[in-house]
Design a protein around this nucleic acid. Structure first.
Lengths: 213, 213
DNA sequence: TGGTGTAATTTGTCATTGTCCAGATCTGCG
DNA sequence: CGCAGATCTGGACAATGACAAATTACACCA
């Protein structure tokens, strides 16, 4: 995080040009988002944290929504990476991989709750950029691939429905947990077990729906 | 909606006392929320729509978050009512009732997408009032009851897990639909069918998990 | 009935915000 | 070396949430 320019700024006077302001704003904005929530997110505070004047961000992001869109886009990329990493780690059977993908999904959401809500929230529809859409699609395709591997011989329509089903269960569960509506008093350990149980039920249902009669 | 005072205001000069300002603010706020999104929600605009000065709301809501909390609380009450109404309408079997409850849930979310996100969003954690918590619990108990009826003989732990499962599927599906991540191009009709298919798969999984071996 | 305290509302103010603008400063290229 | 364009600063503007003080309507009690 703390880049070279911070030291430069601490020793001599700060250089007029930041050098990596765009990155710094995204990074500061991400932290700010988690700290203050969506309604507490502020362009000027991002600028302040990047040690830059309040108007500087304008040269890198046309508006506050542009910055949020960029943050959300990277969120999708990280989400996809987390899913893939977890799936690769436990690559025994297709079913286990699908469960693991779900674990990666939930872990990302738990680690970045506000960002997660920004990505999937209604606000995102207001600043939908092509990059954001593409990134979101990338994550979606992982769900499709995961289900495909579990029930390769099922008809396309059943697969489609099972993708809906799998994704909805995973997404819904972690969303409700983050909001405290599920397992409010549970320990993190118990909560993870609860999540795994749900994932197990989901995968079993998928297999049953897609398997031969 | 349009109350008596509107006519009074139109004919003679507006009375100094609004009479039902609290209600008017909640109602205006709700519309505003859907129109402009959470980030576009403004106390002053609510006041404007209630034909009242910008400082008037302060006597009824301590802060903007207080107003949002009230709106969210009523949302939960309506959500529960929608679930119950739909379940009562199709009261043939427990399974059908559980599906119908899910339909009611989704219909409410589809009709009030931003409000729905406010209720279940991360922002709600910042203004958690006792009333809000109670209202949320009321809706939760409907899920519990619905699952209970379908698998009355299952052990408590299985029931608990199936409540998680059922709620997560329903909540996740409609959330993803509202965000356009599922069935973006589908017609409303096709989308509803897709939702019903998912609900069917969910209920079947619940029955199978809770039934005798 | 009439006065008075209280609740509801308004106007004014302040710090903060997003966005725009003009000017200052730097960087890279010729 | 010089200059054009990118990058950053400082100031401005309207809008916002919150607060304080003044104003108005109402309810209740003497």
């Amino acid at each position: 995080m703390g880049g070279w320019w911070e030291m430069a700024r601490a020793q001599s006077s700060r250089p007029y040009h930041h050098g990596e302001l765009r990155e710094a704003l995204v990074s500061a904005g991400r932290k700010l988002l988690e700290e203050r929530g969506i309604r507490g997110f502020t362009l000027r505070e991002c600028a302040r944290r990047a040690s830059v004047s309040h108007a500087a961000p304008a040269h890198h992001f046309a508006s506050i929504d542009d910055l949020l869109a960029e943050i959300a886009t990277r969120g999708y990329q990280e989400l996809a990476a987390a899913m893939e990493a977890e799936a690769k780690r436990a690559a025994s059977t297709p079913a286990a991989r699908l469960v693991a993908q779900g674990v990666g999904y939930m872990a990302f959401a738990a680690a970045n709750p506000v960002l997660f809500q920004l990505m999937f929230g209604r606000e995102a529809n207001r600043f939908e950029t092509p990059a954001l859409k593409a990134a979101a699609k990338g994550a979606y395709l992982l769900h499709v691939a995961g289900v495909e591997e579990v029930i390769p011989q099922a008809p396309a329509e059943v697969k489609q429905r099972m993708v809906d089903f799998a994704w909805a269960s995973i997404h819904g569960f972690i969303t409700l947990v983050l909001e405290g509506q599920i397992g409010d008093g549970d320990s993190p350990r118990a909560l993870k077990a609860r999540g795994l149980a749900m994932l197990g039920a989901m995968v079993e249902a998928v297999i049953r729906a897609g398997g031969d009669p």
